[in-house]
Design a protein around this nucleic acid. Structure first.
Ligand SMILES: [Zn+2]
Ligand SMILES: [Zn+2]
Ligand SMILES: [Zn+2]
Ligand SMILES: [Zn+2]
Lengths: 130, 130
DNA sequence: TACATAGTGTTATATTATAACAATTTAAAT
DNA sequence: ATTTAAATTGTTATAATATAACACTATGTA
């Protein structure tokens, strides 16, 4: 099912950085970190981010304007994403729950409408911060 | 349960504008619309927006950086929000589903952790756009 | 009154993201 | 192999979103 994607040079550099990061990274922090590798302009970063999001290698944490690598093969190329976010230390974890994704994928609103995509962000305190 | 909140002058002006709008409003569009009422600076808008979000009178649509009035008394002061977003016309509707909110409010992750807050955004095509 | 809390007005600045244009690389199709 | 289309890159400039810092004013409450 997963079509193998060959990343371009910039895409690979930026994906590797995000993938190694223990926390979500912001675009300009990414830029700062890849300037030594020749990526000099915001647009170069944003273009790679757009593509990486599109193919599901990373996700955007909308409430934080930050990006994390996907470690959940079942998240259907960014069509169904769920995260937990600690409001103190800002730790973000991708939630991988079959029952949750089943519930949301099948959810219908009052008019019987089903949706093609969703993003869910939970907030609370992580283990450490409680 | 709902404690009556008296809005300040700026808060009331900005809430009224958002409440009357048929679509989510962006901060600088709000600014533009209230300048004739004496609100001249972005910060005045953002401060009012922060407070209105905090007390649950409006919600922020994170994926769009836009704000809509809450019309759902059951959304527990912005602790549990769900929206449907049309990817063509950008129409946004607040979802009011007891079963959905029950499911998400009670959701526990793998470590048995419950969360104090969530925000869910569904994407698809609205009736008109299909 | 005295005090604390919330709100206001203002200027400046930080952060996040896209427009526009020219060139190059890559992948397919003939 | 040559042509063609699509994707990617590099670059400068600019748009859009959001906060810092400071001085002052209004409001609630002990
Ligand atoms: Zn994922
Ligand atoms: Zn934490
Ligand atoms: Zn609401
Ligand atoms: Zn629509």
């Amino acid at each position: 099912m997963d079509k193998m994607q060959t990343l371009s040079k910039n895409q690979q550099i930026i994906f590797d950085l995000i993938d190694k990061s223990p926390e979500p990274m912001k675009a300009y922090s990414i830029l700062h970190n890849v300037q030594k590798k020749g990526i000099k302009a915001p647009l170069q970063v944003y273009r790679a981010l757009d593509k990486l999001v599109k193919i599901g290698k990373i996700h955007k944490i909308e409430s934080r304007n930050a990006f994390i690598a996907c470690h959940n093969s079942s998240c259907q190329v960014s069509k169904a994403t769920a995260f937990s976010i600690c409001e103190i230390c800002e730790k973000v974890t991708e939630i991988s729950s079959a029952s949750l994704s089943k519930y949301l994928t099948n959810f219908k609103d009052k008019d019987g409408m089903k949706y093609s995509k969703y993003n869910l962000e939970f907030f609370g305190l992580c283990k450490k911060c409680r």
